[in-house]
Amino acid sequence: MQPGETVLVIGATGGVGGVTVPLLAAAKAHVIATAGAADEEGVEEHRNENRR
C-alpha cells in the first residue's frame, strides 16, 4: 500500500477494524470506514483520534 491510497474498512469498530483503522491512518491511507448504528460513538472516537 502507498500513502494516499483509499481503503474501505467494513466493521471498523470491531476487534480487527479497531486495530486496522489506526494502522492505515498512520500509513497515510485515506480510510473509509463503516459501522453499525449502535457503534456511532466508537466511530466518532476514531474520527477524532485521526484528526489530531
Rank of each mutant, 00 (worst) to 15 (best):
V7N: 05
A29L: 09
V43W: 08
G17V: 04
V19L: 14
R51E: 14
V19S: 13
A33T: 02
T20A: 15
T6G: 00
A26V: 00
L24C: 06
G18F: 07
A38E: 11
G17A: 06
G18E: 12
V16R: 01
G11V: 08
G15C: 02
A29P: 02
A37Y: 07
G36K: 10
G15H: 01
G42N: 10
P22N: 09
G14A: 03
G15M: 04
L8D: 06
G42Q: 11
E49K: 15
A27T: 05
G4C: 10
T6N: 05
Q2W: 01
V21E: 11
H46Q: 15
V19C: 10
A26Y: 05
G17Y: 00
V19M: 12
A38I: 10
V7H: 03
E45W: 07
K28H: 13
T34C: 01
V9A: 07
I10E: 02
H30P: 04
E49G: 04
T20S: 06
I32V: 15
T20E: 12
P3C: 09
R47N: 10
T6A: 07
A27L: 09
L24T: 11
R51W: 02
A29R: 15
A27D: 12
G4S: 09
L23N: 13
P22L: 02
A38T: 14
I32A: 09
A12H: 02
A33L: 04
G36L: 11
A38H: 14
V7E: 05
R51K: 14
E44I: 07
T13A: 10
K28F: 06
N50I: 06
E45N: 07
A35F: 04
H30G: 03
A27K: 13
N48M: 10
R51P: 00
V21Q: 06
L8Q: 05
E40L: 11
V31F: 03
G11K: 06
V9T: 08
E45V: 14
L8T: 03
L23T: 11
V9R: 01
L24E: 11
V7M: 02
T20R: 01
G36R: 15
T13Q: 06
E40A: 15
E5V: 01
G18S: 08
V19P: 00
V21W: 05
E44F: 01
A33H: 00
E40C: 01
Q2P: 08
E49W: 12
E40G: 02
I32R: 13
A37K: 14
L24W: 03
A12M: 11
A35I: 03
N50V: 04
E5F: 05
L23V: 08
E45Y: 04
G11W: 07
T20H: 02
G15P: 00
V43T: 13
N50K: 01
A35L: 04
V7G: 07
V7C: 04
N50H: 12
R51Y: 04
P22M: 00
H30V: 14
R52Y: 10
P3Q: 03
I10V: 15
V19H: 13
V16N: 02
V7A: 09
G14L: 05
T13L: 02
A37D: 13
A12L: 05
I10L: 14
V31N: 08
A37G: 04
E45I: 11
E45D: 13
G11R: 08
V31R: 12
A26G: 13
A26K: 15
N50Q: 14
A33Y: 00
E44V: 10
T20L: 15
T6Q: 13
G36D: 07
A37F: 11
A35E: 05
R47P: 02
N50W: 11
